[in-house]
Design a protein around this nucleic acid. Structure first.
Lengths: 337, 337
DNA sequence: CTCTTCGGTGGAAACGTTTCCATCGGCGGC
DNA sequence: GCCGCCGATGGAAACGTTTCCACCGAAGAG
């Protein structure tokens, strides 16, 4: 293994100067820099990160804790963050917590052991995580959590729910069911509360039996939709709190031989590549997931530089396609009844 | 920061004994271990990985190079590998190369800089990567590449193509188009070659204009399908070389107002969560992606332990749904003509 | 009873950086 | 012409581990 000592010897300078030439921070003569660079090339020197970390207490590595990278929302997030980080020469260690708070604890422990410089966390469940984020910069992503003083980067969930409710009501729906995310999470809670408020604002408060709490996972969406469809008076529209539950609901609807947008409207928070390809395509609230990821990284980097970063709330928009029942005569009739 | 020296002092043993007690490898008395453990708990000691790495030349970190984590195939792979690694206390740094060989080079450089203990690589393009994998254990995943002596973990691509062709021909299709992956990649090449051979075996060799080479990306599938559908004599079935190109092809088919499984059959290599929800659902060759990931990790670990690991070829199976045109009278008529 | 062996331990030397501190010319200001 | 400052450099001390080597006592073999 070729060390910086070898480089220094080859370049005819001291170890200290070689180091300075390589890190580029301190004052070194142009001549020395050239000598050192030449020596590096000749010898094929590569700096040993472990040794550097030991001295500098930095690893140029950050941790990313998400629920499940197989969920398109998190894939995109993870992709965006990796891109942003790579540009700055920072590596990303990703862990999946599967919406389980104990796995979050394990992961965070492992990540801090790995000596990451910072942490981007999508908090699992409602659990607060004391002990963990002792003195390492943290940014919360997508969800907020009580008792953490870290900045939060998230989408405007309330606005999203409002846009969707307005749209559904505008189409004539008055009997709207909600499959909400877990009320222990801020996203689940905000989306749900805002939707309820808006429904009341429109004078069509929801029926009690049309409000089902899921857990953001596919199976819960399936169960919820099954229950909703079995109701004596079937709701005319179902608004799912995330793409996975919408997916589950879609399966349930299909299974009962019903068609979305015709027999029952189905709309969702979060877009997905293939939602446009459904028949009819799915009306959704789209988050700018890529921006969310990049913003989270920028915020983390600001914090790592010692600046105190602000929360960020990114706008969402509604993408109207067909599953909301616009243009369906059958649903129109049902809506009138 | 509390060091192992502090722990040793508190436990009333030497630094050396404390270290031995913690790593658990060497011979230490049970009493000493207990003392040290107690001291660790009291002081809240956490071992400094950088210092350990500096001595041991290990980082307990591996690198994973994939094309794009937003592709469900790679999400699943990435998930499986992270799970397997976490169980062994190993962290995974993931990078996306976007099927671009220059980004692969950059990523590998970054990963080796990070001093990873091993590398799982899905090779991009056809590019060989000399210089990189000097003395660090590497496992190739999904695709093989010329001139690398690393073990390869992959699915049985040839069998997959054969299964699908047999099935299509069995349904009466004689006019089958192929949207292949890039012939520079082993997967693209094997799947294509096996399909061609099998077609000839059935006595229905493909038309020249029904063979289109894509690049595993969505857009290329779209373009290819568009071209195929515009042919004077439209093929009765299209076999896409991966899920992304199938997705693109699906968009093209939809755009022309055609229905899969009725006007034209569409089948694909790789399954996806939502393929079953298409109308009709998509017939595919399913790989056991989770097993692929776990196997890759196991193989890498074997190599890191100095054992020389074998290539692994995992079986695939065909999942017959509706998009192949089974049960469609319209397509049956076309097939007869 | 002596010699060897062996489990358990401590001292101290690495591992490869960064950086503090000191040194040394040279140059501008007085 | 001298003093002080400043840019450039070198020596050497950390950073927190693991592990080599040496040592000690007890136990087993002869």
């Amino acid at each position: 293994m070729v060390t910086i000592r070898d480089v220094a010897a080859r370049a005819g300078v001291s170890q200290a100067t070689a180091s300075r030439a390589l890190t580029g921070s301190d004052s070194v003569s142009a001549g020395a820099v050239a000598q050192v660079q030449a020596a590096v090339d000749e010898l094929g020197y590569r700096t040993n990160r472990a040794a550097r970390s030991l001295r500098t207490h930095r690893t140029d590595t950050i941790g990313l804790l998400i629920s499940d990278v197989r969920n398109p929302f998190f894939s995109e997030l993870s992709y965006a963050i990796e891109q942003a980080a790579a540009e700055q020469g920072i590596a990303v260690i990703t862990t999946n917590a599967d919406e389980r708070v104990e796995r979050q604890t394990d992961s965070l422990r492992a990540l801090t052991m790995q000596q990451v410089d910072g942490l981007i966390i999508v908090p699992q469940g409602g659990g607060a995580f004391e002990e963990i984020s002792e003195d390492i910069p943290v940014v919360l992503l997508d969800r907020r959590v009580t008792g953490a003083d870290a900045p939060v980067v998230h989408s405007d969930n309330r606005a999203g729910s409002q846009l969707m409710i307005d749209h559904l009501v505008g189409l004539g729906h008055t009997d709207i069911a909600l499959i909400s995310g877990p009320q222990a999470t801020s996203t689940g809670q905000e989306r749900f509360a805002a939707a309820i408020e808006r429904l009341h604002g429109h004078g069509c408060g929801p029926r009690e039996d049309c409000l089902v709490e899921g857990d953001f996972q596919l199976a819960s969406g399936y169960r919820a939709a099954t229950r909703l469809l079995d109701l004596p008076r079937r709701p005319s529209a179902i608004f799912a709190g995330d793409n996975l539950m919408a997916f589950g609901a879609l399966q349930a609807i299909r299974e009962q031989g019903l068609r979305i947008g015709h027999d029952v409207a189905l709309v969702s928070f979060d877009d997905t590549d293939w939602f446009p390809l459904l028949d009819p395509p799915m009306t959704v609230i789209s988050q700018d997931v890529h921006a969310l990821g990049m913003r989270a990284f920028d915020t983390l980097q600001a914090r790592m530089d010692g600046q105190d970063a602000q929360d960020a709330c990114l706008p969402v928009r509604i993408t109207v396609r067909g599953s909301c029942g616009a243009g369906s005569t059958a649903l129109r009739a049902r809506r009138r009844s």
